[in-house]
């Protein structure tokens, strides 16, 4: 088995009096699609926001490639090779596709100390990324505000690819997509893993998860209640973990 890219130990997150996450242990491995499931409010988005450097954890530690890390911003996480596609896609609708793909990490050349954008080069790169993704977007200069849900998802994925990320986290990437666009995003998810990327996928769609995931983790009320290899489980068992009907979950919730 390959060494984990990222190890989370005892992660907890409190928002004031509300405990959104407690004592979560998780290992994320390269080349593997890990699906994160759980009911609304289970803490999935909160967990990945901690991995992404958007929230500091209240407790616990993160270890990336064997080294403990403390992210104080999404930029820190990005420089550790973690790219996140947030549920509320962090795209700027008023900027163009190529501007969005490079936002925060623009290509520039310095003239007399002033950083000038290398727009032509950025456009060229985005153009070839879009082709590679088969995203059906012809103009990288179009404003993101004018794109469809699937096209926006593709732009967000472009951003992750462009970062050469070692871990790509996707929060419900297919939630707002039509069938054809969903297929494309799922295929892309597999392709990322085949490239050696670690992928974390959050989804509410069980059949979709069984189609692409190698490993399935279930969150319930801020705790990790199950971790299964896909081959060792079935949709019924996973659903019982999510709803809390599984005897193991009942026992766990009684002890706490």
């Amino acid at each position: 088995m390959t060494a984990a890219f990222l190890v989370a130990r005892g992660i907890a997150k409190r928002f004031g009096a509300l405990t959104a996450l407690s004592d979560v242990d998780l290992e994320i491995r390269p080349g593997e699609v890990l699906a994160l499931l759980g009911d609304n409010g289970a803490g999935k988005s909160t967990f990945i926001k901690i991995l992404a450097g958007a929230h500091p954890p209240s407790d616990g530690e993160l270890i990336v490639e064997g080294m403990p890390v403390a992210f104080s911003s999404p930029k820190d996480a990005a420089s550790s090779g973690i790219a996140t596609i947030f549920q509320e896609l962090a795209l700027s609708e008023n900027l163009s596709i190529s501007e969005n793909v490079f936002l925060g990490r623009e290509l520039k050349r310095s003239v007399l100390g002033v950083p000038f954008l290398r727009r032509a080069e950025m456009r060229r790169r985005v153009d070839s990324l879009l082709k590679e993704l088969d995203a059906h977007i012809s103009d990288p200069e179009a404003p993101v505000g004018s794109l469809s849900g699937g096209q926006r998802q593709a732009v967000a994925i472009c951003r992750a690819l462009n970062l050469n990320a070692k871990l790509v986290i996707m929060d419900e990437p297919t939630a707002a997509l039509a069938v054809a666009e969903t297929r494309k995003v799922l295929a892309l998810t597999r392709r990322l893993a085949e490239r050696g990327c670690a992928v974390v996928l959050i989804s509410h769609n069980i059949s979709e998860v069984f189609e692409v995931a190698d490993r399935i983790v279930v969150f319930r009320r801020g705790r990790k209640v199950a971790e299964r290899l896909r081959a060792e489980t079935d949709p019924e068992e996973i659903v019982s973990f999510i709803t809390g009907a599984h005897p193991g979950v009942r026992a766990l919730e009684k002890t706490n």
Partner: peptide
């Protein structure tokens, strides 16, 4: 100006 939170998440 579009969204401060999204800008922050983008690493700006």
């Amino acid at each position: 100006g579009n969204s401060e939170e999204k800008a922050r998440l983008s690493g700006i």
